[in-house]
Amino acid sequence: MEGLMDLGRTDMDPSRRSVLGAGLFSVALTVPGWQEIMGRAEAVQSGRTSRVGRPEVDMVTAMTERISELDDQFGGRHARPMAASFIVNTVSPFLRADAPDDVRKDMLSAASDLCYLTGYMAVDEGLQGLAQQYYLKALELAGAAEDHLTYCTTLRGMSVQAVDLGHGPQALRLADAAAAASPQAGPRMRAFLSGQQAHAAARTGDRRSAFTHLKDAETAMEKAESQAKIFGSYDPTALSYATSQVRYELGDLSGAIRAMAEADRLREPVYRRIRVLRRAMLAERQLRLGHLEEASATWHSALDEYPHVQSGRVDDRIRTMASLIRPHRRNRAARELHDRARTVAPAVLRV
């Protein structure tokens, strides 16, 4: 609990942002296993000063959902410090409070979800070391809550972070650990985990394993879609994105573009940040294939919503766009895109 408080206080203090930014992603990070976390939780003696009940758990859950909605629509730059403040001022005291056993476990689980989300928002801002610290806290809290779902979700999130940073073997270890820790997962969760295993395996160059995991994800998704869907859960949009990443890693650029375009077509309107990010990525791949006008049109669609998003990852994609399109400015479409980008994103492009 003290570590969680310190982490949140540092993150919510603007004067410490430079310190947070200095933290690097660690390939050698020690990830605690399920049994180890359970042992720690049983040994904790908390100083209980008040009592919490079901309404407090519901409040933490609802607040996490609202922050997640803000992140989806506007990016994590402004939402994460708000989450950190909520962790310090509200959630941490709740975790120290007395409660019936079932309520206490649910509170730990709700806190784990919030830490996972806060770590994800740190990734979005490029604060990789900070994200790992939040993810570790999420693992510890999930273990104390006996919450396999959030534990596995967090391990998968750590795998996504690792593969996006180019650490294929570490990403695969984390993805495999997530799948192994969830032996009773339903079909949607299996698709969620298998899709990431496929991407991580493709990053290591293991074509056979990548397509085996991808097929498993597709089969599980077919079963999941025949059941009631929970909004915001893993869906065909996310699976199409995983397919695109697998094909891209294995050199199938055309297949990667088709799958990415399909993911964009299926994506719900509320996911603005991820839509801008993925469209920029799609445009980069279209340009690599030599389709300059098509790439320019896709980048324009990303710029349409860019002003509404506060995201380090999106800013990086806009900078990449400017550098890629600059050599093609003799082309009218490229020139118009370049000029518009300088108007829409002057701070990012330092115009």
Rank of each mutant, 00 (worst) to 15 (best):
M158A: 00
M158E: 02
M158T: 02
M158S: 01
V160G: 07
V160L: 14
Q161D: 08
A162H: 10
V163T: 13
V163K: 15
V163F: 15
L165A: 12
H167R: 04
G168L: 02
P169A: 02
Q170P: 08
Q170Y: 10
L174F: 10
L174N: 01
A177T: 03
A177K: 02
A178T: 00
A178S: 15
A179Q: 12
A179K: 07
A179Y: 11
A181K: 00
S182G: 14
S182K: 01
P183A: 06
Q184H: 14
Q184L: 11
P187R: 02
R188G: 06
R188Y: 04
R188V: 05
R190H: 08
R190C: 06
F192M: 08
S194V: 00
A201G: 10
A201D: 05
A202G: 09
R203Y: 11
R203H: 13
R203Q: 14
T204I: 09
T204H: 01
G205V: 03
R207Q: 13
R208E: 15
R208L: 12
S209C: 11
S209V: 08
A210H: 09
A210W: 01
A210S: 09
F211W: 14
T212W: 11
T212M: 11
L214S: 03
L214H: 06
A217Q: 05
E218P: 00
E218Q: 14
T219Y: 13
A220W: 01
E222I: 00
K223Q: 15
A224M: 00
A224K: 05
E225S: 09
S226M: 12
Q227W: 06
G232Y: 09
S233N: 13
Y234T: 02
D235G: 10
D235H: 04
D235I: 06
A238W: 15
L239G: 01
L239R: 02
S240F: 07
S240Q: 05
Y241H: 14
Y241T: 11
T243Y: 09
T243M: 13
S244I: 00
S244N: 09
Q245H: 13
V246N: 04
R247D: 12
Y248E: 14
Y248P: 02
D252V: 04
G255R: 01
I257R: 00
I257H: 06
I257L: 05
R258L: 13
R258G: 09
A261G: 12
E262C: 06
E262W: 03
A263Q: 00
A263C: 05
R265M: 02
R265E: 11
R265V: 03
R265P: 06
R267N: 07
E268K: 08
E268Y: 09
E268S: 09
